[in-house]
């Protein structure tokens, strides 16, 4: 299968080059110097310890979401509802923090409980999508999409209703928590908290171990690839699907909890920040491999952070990062499809 690996690398790198070439063309078409734009992104992501820390801050929720999605993808499920699961994680975390902030519990214990609550929230929201699929016959894509809207509405209602700031409600979210309820960062100025970083890394390791080396992972794979055969082989199918939803939801909820307790220190309207959708892209880009999910998520995070100052330095919108990410996923998937097609043609099978 050396041949197979060779073509894989060839098509993979070719797809990346095409994506970059197209992005370059688009930047050039807007009258900007593409090289300058790229230099700017690299500078923006690695130029100072501060921005590098920001890349890691952004990597944490992305890595968590991707790690979770590896489970649902393995189970043959499209967990589009992950955005809502992140939001619910944030809501549950906020709720726990609000409820416990004036109690005698130590700040550390409160944060721990709040993070656990966030995981629970995400898990419940994911199980809801799973239950809709298993018992209600609602495809998880549509169920998840619907639940995303509900989660957003719930979030806004809380921010503008029961949890609004004293005085006037604001798009900037709920009133920030007291600093002792913030997850500790590496230094006073930095936003980088070591605990979430470790948790995200652990999530990826967990995904790797469970999916590559455990009987649960193998059974989940069988369910994902052929539920009918899996059932006849004695594997409880819907239970495995629900379990993969629960795991994904827990990781997504953890991401939401981290955004509340370590990044924003409050609940804001767009708390999930699209990390769920980006996580879907990362998972697809790495072909659902737990090994490459971490590094590629880091690259995506760097693109996102690096492009923030594009509008300031050059007259380019920061959505350029999204353009590059989108093109990458699109062309890598396309390249892979093309590769398989050519391979089949070469073997003479249609």
């Amino acid at each position: 299968m050396l041949d197979d690996r060779k073509t894989r690398i060839l098509f993979g790198s070719g797809s990346v080059l095409v994506a970059l070439a197209l992005t370059t063309a688009i930047v050039a078409a807007t009258g900007n110097n593409p090289l300058q734009a790229y230099a700017n992104i690299i500078q923006g992501a690695t130029g100072s310890p501060n921005v590098a820390a920001n890349v890691l801050v952004s990597w944490v929720p992305l890595a968590l979401a991707t790690a979770g999605l590896l489970f649902t993808f393995t189970g043959g499920l499209w967990n589009i509802g992950i955005e809502g699961q992140i939001t619910l994680g944030a809501i549950f975390c906020t709720w726990a923090l609000r409820s416990l902030q004036n109690t005698a519990l130590s700040p550390g214990a409160i944060i721990a409980v709040a993070v656990a609550a966030g995981m629970l929230g995400g898990m419940l929201w994911a199980l809801l999508a799973g239950a809709l699929k298993t018992f209600g016959g609602v495809n998880e894509i549509f169920g998840g999409l619907g639940l995303n809207f509900v989660a957003t509405a719930l979030n806004l209602w809380l921010i503008f209703g029961p949890w609004k700031r004293p005085g006037v409600a604001s798009m900037s979210g709920t009133l920030p928590f007291e600093p002792e309820l913030w997850m500790p960062t590496i230094s006073v100025q930095s936003r980088l908290a070591p605990v979430p970083l470790v948790l995200a890394a652990l999530a990826l390791v967990t995904a790797f171990i469970l999916l590559r080396g455990s009987h649960f992972g193998l059974r989940l794979k069988a369910v994902g690839k052929n539920p009918r055969a899996a059932y006849l082989l004695g594997i409880p199918t819907w239970q495995h699907m629900l379990l993969s939803f629960a795991l994904c939801g827990a990781f997504a909820g953890l991401a939401g909890a981290v955004q509340v307790s370590a990044v924003y220190h409050r609940l804001i309207p767009s708390i999930s920040s699209g990390y769920g959708y980006t996580g879907l892209m990362v998972a697809m880009l790495v072909n659902y491999s737990p090994v490459f999910a971490g590094p590629v998520a880091l690259f995506f995070a760097a693109l996102g952070v690096g492009s923030i100052q594009l509008p300031i330095v050059l007259k380019l919108d920061s959505s350029l990062a999204g353009v590059i990410q989108g093109f990458l996923v699109l062309f890598v998937l396309m390249g892979n499809g093309l590769r398989l097609k050519l391979l089949r043609r070469k073997r003479g099978t249609l």
Partner: peptide, 12 residues
């Protein structure tokens, strides 16, 4: 369609 899982190996 119903008995085996395409995409998985004999060992699996």
């Amino acid at each position: 369609e119903k008995g085996l899982v395409p995409g998985m190996s004999l060992a699996e």
